[in-house]
Amino acid sequence: MLKATIDADILKESIDALSALVTECRLHTDENGVITRAVDTANVAMVSLTLKKEAFESYSSSKSELGLDIAKMKNVFTMMGKNDIITLELPENSHKLKISFEGYRYSLTLLDPSTIRKDPNPPNIDLPGKVVLPGAELNNAIKAATVVSDKIALGIDPQAQIFYMTAEGDTDHIRREFGKDEVNFLNGVEARSLFSLDYLKDMGRVMSRAAEVEVSLGTDHPAKFSFYIASGNGRVEYLLAPRIEAD
């Protein structure tokens, strides 16, 4: 059972964070809120999303698991107005999620959770380098890199106190450096890993709305990007597997 009302923007923000990587996911709900964790089809990127009950205008739910078709959900968004309050309702033992706002009454058939890939276990990794910067800056650097290449290196140079993003094309090269005045070095240790821009591009669009994104890095290790949504009542974590260049 789920019965909740939520601001249209917060709902969109949350679903967009998921749709950057996956087209369907399992939502777990309980009295405290909603959690989901999903991995993209190639097992290269993971997303986990937590939405506390405080992110909702009103919220009550029993422990349950919902199979969400994200593409369908996004279709519903096209009808939503900016500050609409959305009512979500899933009666006990029902497979149809009722979504209503502004005179619209949707009934969305949910996916059978057992047909959706199981929640991935996040790998147990230590990512020592940690910086915090505005999501918009991060996204701008990603966008700049896509012009010259399809991959980008993210790294920390502890001597120079620099967080950098560089992309190497066949003929062109781009480097964006962030100094101490732009980035908060939580842990400025040596790190450098290469990532596919294909994934980062979509993740960057979502992160651009976050005031602060915490980036965790290692060398030839995955990267973790964490940020708050829903005025601090929700948190998103992206984990992206690196590309490792042959010697």
């Binding site: 991995v39 190639a42 097992n43 290269v44 993971m46 991935p120 790998p123 596919s196 995955p222 984990l239 597997a241 690196p242 590309r243 490792i244 260049e245 042959a246």
Partner: peptide, 11 residues
């Protein structure tokens, strides 16, 4: 034999 893209787990 020399994939550049790594993944979190292989199935």
């Amino acid at each position: 034999a020399q994939k550049e893209q790594t993944s979190f787990f292989s199935e």
